[in-house]
Nucleic acid binder design. Structure first.
Lengths: 345, 345
DNA sequence: CCGCAGTATGTAAGCGCTTACAATTTTGAT
DNA sequence: ATCAAAATTGTAAGCGCTTACATACTGCGG
């Protein structure tokens, strides 16, 4: 047993206000059919006693914890930081807290983290992307937990989503380059295993290239981990090839930064000698020199919409199974027509 | 009352294993004095039934929720993202979850968020910096909640901290410039209200300048919000002055990026005509051209140490009241001797 | 062979709320 | 006024665990 607690309990408030505990609870929870007089008596007693409800007891009794869980690959990537930031801000409006867990793109870790969060009692869950262990879905369904995926737009009856098309904009980027006359395309991609977004972007690049009759050969597709230095390395290995590419499509802005920096270090002019594209539109993209042509990923908007939709679902409402947000192509100065003659003939 | 639940309860496990509920609980919580035989019977029953303990019930009964709260100004700044990322990873090792709340540098919001997290039942709390509402401290103390501040190194018996000195490295940065011969220093600072870190950095810049006999005049200190564009603006307003500064000390890397970009746009060579320093050492700092001289803020290390220390405190152990981590000066190419003659005589 | 310390397990009383249901009061149409 | 329906408040049974305390063993020195 526990020692008698010193803290003010709901029962104390009830006594102080001269009402029942149920009434105090009702006032606390803004239940309907509570008279103004009752409300006043109770709030006055609460103020007098400095009462603070106990979240854990409330969670046990009401079966909701007042928090959702978010599973993100990493918070080291600022694009996810931006999304989580807006998600948390918006959840606050709904009086909901946020539990986060990261899994470094390891889907087994994701599944484990998901189970942990569920065990913790979260009222809902947000996942990034469409790639997950099958057990994740069955667990979610068995518990009938409201959930949402985001950052992608796959049509899948099992996975409701709020996100954007990754392939389409990637295609648009490639088409933009092809339209400019580029025929020697190269791609720097993030690892595609366990990452549908990276895969979709890569696929988009490929499709556009193939549709124009100049598919990207495998050696022109290099996969590297996330990071500026990694982008630099990718550039090196790509530019060793003959003929060198006239344009490099990058799976995200950070890789593009690396590629761009390495190119400049090598004395290659952008976009005159080499065009570069990114994906994300991080804040610094428009400040690079030249400013980076990229896709504006609606990270903050996703956060807001996920918050609203998940809260609605938790409240028993139904929300669209799939919400598509535009991820517009942002044309800047890192792309231009290919050089008329090969740099090294 | 509630409907009879379908879910497997601890009681079911007890029945299945032919033991008492207390025994199941003991096995679950790795209590001492549990025989191997009991443990096996119980774990077997758990597996057979697919039992998953209920976090909320456990929280109510045991008075710990298995999660700590983190109060950060924003997650939109990648330096905090990096810290939260490592914090969460490390907490996971200790089987502890993370609840986050942001407050946009508004200390009233911080206080409110703190109260919300406490009400939620968090086992401990991490705050950023030394500036907080007095009520935050009293609330923390009244609840006897383990807590830690970080990102600063103020000696204050009330606030245990794990962080780094902000003023010292700022001083080092300014001294570095003064040593190079600069006498026309300027500062671009983040807003210092409610932000002891920004204030300490500014103070460090000032002290060093004054100690060398060339204090920074007020018009040479411009305060702008966080952002690259804001850094650009700061540059403009600074370079309008006569004589223009030969070096600009920035309160963080992002502002420094802005200043650097605006300088380059204006055709000013760095560091020949203008030296620039940052603070944070974001990943891109070493990839700027020229690479940015800055202070390496140990964000990931702070996350790890905070996790370990807070877990220890929650466990009743005492940890050092103040842990100082080095934030080294990283000399790169954005700083150099001032031009011999003024650019515009 | 007894008794005591130490170990292992069981019993059941909470933890501090929410909410189904009952009881009471108010309202509104006769 | 009269009574059913609606609105308001009260009663008390959980929610699913943990843990203090009681009980039952176990082994060992005397």
């Amino acid at each position: 047993m526990h020692k008698a607690t010193q803290r003010t309990l709901l029962e104390d408030v009830a006594r102080e206000a001269g009402v029942s505990t149920a009434s105090v609870s009702r006032v606390l929870n803004h239940a309907p059919n509570v008279s103004e007089r009752l409300r006043e008596k109770v709030t006055a007693a609460i103020d007098r006693l400095g009462y603070v409800p106990d979240g854990t007891a409330r969670a046990l009794a009401s079966r909701r914890i007042g928090a959702i869980g978010a599973l993100v690959p990493t918070l080291d990537n600022p694009i996810f930081g931006a999304m989580i930031d807006s998600l948390e801000q918006r959840l606050k409006r709904h009086d909901c807290r946020l539990l986060i867990a990261t899994y470094r793109y390891d889907l087994d870790d994701e599944l484990e983290a998901l189970r942990t969060l569920i065990q913790q009692g979260v009222d809902g869950l947000v996942l990034i992307g469409h790639d997950h262990r099958p057990a994740a879905l069955t667990t979610l369904q068995r518990r009938q937990l409201p959930f949402l995926t985001c950052w992608h737009a796959e049509e899948d009856p099992d996975w409701p989503c709020i996100g954007f098309d990754n392939a389409g904009p990637a295609r648009a980027l490639a088409e933009h380059l092809l339209m400019l006359g580029h025929r020697q395309l190269a791609v720097v991609s993030a690892p595609v295993d366990s990452n549908d977004r990276a895969r979709a972007r890569l696929e988009g690049f490929r499709q556009a290239a193939e549709a124009t009759g100049c598919p990207v050969p495998p050696e022109r597709i290099v996969t590297v981990e996330y990071g500026i230095a990694e982008g630099c390395q990718a550039f090196e290995s790509l530019m060793r090839q003959q003929p060198p590419p006239t344009a490099i499509l990058c799976g995200n802005d950070t890789l593009a930064f690396g590629v761009m920096l390495a190119a400049q270090r090598a004395g290659i002019r952008i976009p005159e000698e080499l065009s570069i594209t990114g994906f994300d539109d991080l804040p610094q993209a428009r400040f690079m020199s030249p400013p980076l042509t990229t896709i504006a990923v609606p990270a903050a908007e996703i956060g807001r919409r996920v918050a609203d939709a998940l809260i609605a679902r938790i409240g028993g409402e139904t929300t669209p199974h799939r919400q598509l947000i535009d991820a517009p192509l942002v044309l800047r100065a890192s792309t231009g027509p290919p050089p008329v003659q090969q740099p090294k003939p």
